[in-house]
């Protein structure tokens, strides 16, 4: 049994098996994302009551908080894949890392955007130089740097390894940046805004938040794996298995059997 598991993991790192395995996962992820989104929107807008302090503006939280979480998790995932890519030279790790990056950047941007629109009615300002806001902005810049470097180097292999190194350097720096910004903010803090005072949450609000988090995870899985498929096809243009994908379905199956 253990050996089976090991073989499957190895299979996953080959572009061809990756493509076919992922093909089966993607539709499920889309369905989960869609259903969770409908559930989250229904609970969040129709069932959850207005907050006694913030009125209705707190409903921004249901997209803001999952977006902020996703932007951080995705950066960690990229760093993990970058490590695998640099140490074990697994090609597919780079495909996964670069496929994750645009989605992570979008979530980082969304956490800033929705945060600004939430901040205006709540604190009276779109932007304050709070530690969390500042480090979110820097996280977005780290994403942009990673993607810019990957795009700037013409040779794909070199681009992947250079960008992986940048992702790792970035992830080492994230805690240093976070603590220094936090520390800077507590020194400079003149405004009376505290973000950490969490209000107690009604059960329905919590349910909506969970549903939206599930939706964001499933969305990320679906969209990132689809992008990884496209990336794989573009990279494996010359490979026989990729060429056979283009054949009409009946001949494809026969060809598959021949080459197993």
């Amino acid at each position: 049994m253990e050996q089976d598991g090991r073989i499957r993991w190895l299979k996953f790192s080959s572009p061809r098996h990756f493509y076919h395995l992922v093909d089966r996962v993607i539709p499920w992820a889309w369905w989960v994302a869609g259903i969770a989104l409908v559930v989250g929107l229904t609970i969040g807008f129709l069932i959850a009551p207005a907050d006694y302090q913030q009125g209705n503006s707190y409903r921004i939280m249901f997209i803001h908080v999952p977006a902020a979480w996703m932007s951080m998790f995705i950066y960690l995932l990229i760093a993990g894949y970058a490590f695998i890519h640099l140490v074990w030279r697994v090609k597919m790790a780079d495909v996964m890392a670069i496929s994750l990056a645009p989605t992570g950047a979008i979530f980082a941007f969304l956490s800033l955007w929705t945060g600004a629109l939430w901040g205006r009615p709540t604190w009276g300002a779109y932007w304050v130089w709070d530690a969390r806001l500042t480090s979110s902005l820097l996280l977005l810049l780290l994403y942009l740097g990673y993607m810019a470097l990957h795009a700037a180097i013409p040779d794909r292999q070199r681009a992947g390894r250079a960008a992986s190194l940048v992702a790792l350097v970035g992830v080492v720096n994230v805690p240093i940046i976070y603590f220094s910004v936090h520390w800077w903010n507590t020194l400079h803090q003149g405004a009376s805004i505290t973000l950490t005072a969490a209000p107690t949450m009604a059960g329905t609000m919590f349910a909506a938040l969970v549903a939206m988090t599930v939706a964001c995870w499933a969305y990320t899985i679906a969209v990132v794996l689809t992008r990884a498929q496209a990336e794989t096809l573009e990279r494996e243009r010359g490979a026989l298995w990729a060429a056979q994908l283009a054949d009409p379905p009946h001949t494809r199956q026969e060809a598959d059997k021949e080459h197993v």
Binding site: N56, I60, T103, P121, Y219, V223
Partner: peptide
């Protein structure tokens, strides 16, 4: 509700961006 523009502004932009992606 005076907060509606802010709520719509965040949700619509979020959905539009993710849809576009």
């Amino acid at each position: 509700d005076p907060h509606t523009p802010f709520i719509l502004g965040s949700w619509l932009v979020a959905m539009a961006l993710l849809g576009l992606e």
